[in-house]
C-alpha cells in the first residue's frame, strides 16, 4: 500500500503576546492509501491544527508535509489551491454549505473551481447525491435540509473531484448520535466500497472506535496508536 500523506517532525507555533504557543511539537505520521484513520484528542490537543496542515490550509513552523511524494513547502499558493482542489476533500463540523445555492449547486462548486465542463458537473453531482441518499432533494437549499442531510451534501461535495484523501473535522459534532452514526456509516461505506482514504478528527470515543486506525493526540504529540480492524 502506498503512502498518501506523511508528516515528518511537524511543528506549529502561534505567537501569543510575548511568548509563543506551541500547538504541535513534532508529529510523525504516515497515512496509507485506503485506510480510515481517526485522530482523537481533547480540545486544545492540536488535532484541528494538524488537520488544517494536512489539508494544505496552513503552513507548518517546522517539519515537512509530503502529499503523494511532493513536499508542500515547495509549492506556491496557487499550487496549494490546486492540490486542495484535486487531492483533498474537506468535510466540516458545521457543514459549511453555500446558503444561497441548492444541494446540486453546492456539489457542483468544487468542479466549477476545478474547471470541469458544465454538463459533466451536473451529471457527476446528481449521481453522487443519489449515492448519499439525497436524489430527491437536489433542488433544496441547505436551510431546507436537516443537519444529517446537509452533512451528506457536504460529503458529496468533498468526494466529487475524486480526491486522494478526505479530511473530516468533527463531522458528527453537530449531529445527534443516531444521525452521527448514519453519517459515519456512509463514510465507512465509501472507504470500504470505493477504497477512499479518510482522516477524521474527533473528541468522541464512540466515533473514534469506528475507525480502522486510532491515533491519540495530546498536547501536540502523539501519545498512542492502535489498529482496530
Amino acid at each position: 500500500m502506498s503512502v498518501v500523506m506523511e508528516t515528518v517532525g511537524l511543528e506549529k507555533e502561534y505567537p501569543q503576546g510575548d511568548s509563543v504557543l506551541r500547538v504541535l511539537k513534532g508529529i510523525d505520521l504516515k497515512v496509507v492509501e485506503g485506510e480510515f484513520m481517526a485522530i482523537m484528542g481533547p480540545s486544545g490537543s492540536g488535532k484541528s491544527t494538524l488537520l488544517n496542515m494536512l489539508g494544505a490550509l496552513d503552513k507548518p513552523s517546522a517539519g515537512k508535509i509530503i502529499v503523494h511524494g511532493t513536499d508542500l513547502s515547495t509549492l506556491n499558493d496557487n499550487e496549494l489551491a490546486d492540490l486542495r482542489s484535486k487531492e483533498i476533500g474537506f468535510v466540516f463540523q458545521f457543514f459549511n454549505l453555500i446558503p444561497r445555492s441548492n444541494a446540486l449547486k453546492n456539489v457542483e462548486l468544487p468542479m466549477a473551481i476545478a474547471g470541469v465542463p458544465r454538463r459533466e458537473r451536473r451529471e457527476r453531482a446528481s449521481k453522487l447525491l443519489e449515492l448519499v441518499g439525497l436524489g430527491e432533494r437536489m433542488d433544496h437549499r441547505p436551510a431546507e435540509l436537516s443537519g444529517g442531510e446537509q452533512q451528506r451534501v457536504a460529503i458529496a461535495r468533498a468526494l466529487v473531484n475524486e480526491p486522494s484523501v478526505l479530511l473530516c473535522d468533527e463531522v458528527t459534532g453537530n449531529l445527534d448520535s443516531k444521525t452521527g452514526f448514519e453519517v459515519m456509516e456512509l463514510l465507512l461505506s465509501f472507504n470500504k466500497e470505493q477504497g477512499k482514504t479518510f482522516i477524521l478528527i474527533t473528541h468522541d470515543p464512540n466515533v473514534a472506535q469506528m475507525a480502522q486506525r486510532l491515533v491519540q493526540l495530546q498536547d501536540g504529540i502523539i501519545i498512542g496508536e492502535k489498529k482496530l480492524w
Partner: peptide, 16 residues
C-alpha cells in the same frame, strides 16, 4: 468570510 474560507478549502485560488 466563512464562505470564502470554504471556497479556499475546496480549491479556489485567491485569484478565483
Amino acid at each position: 468570510t466563512r464562505e470564502i474560507g470554504v471556497l479556499k478549502a475546496i480549491g479556489a485560488r485567491s485569484s478565483d
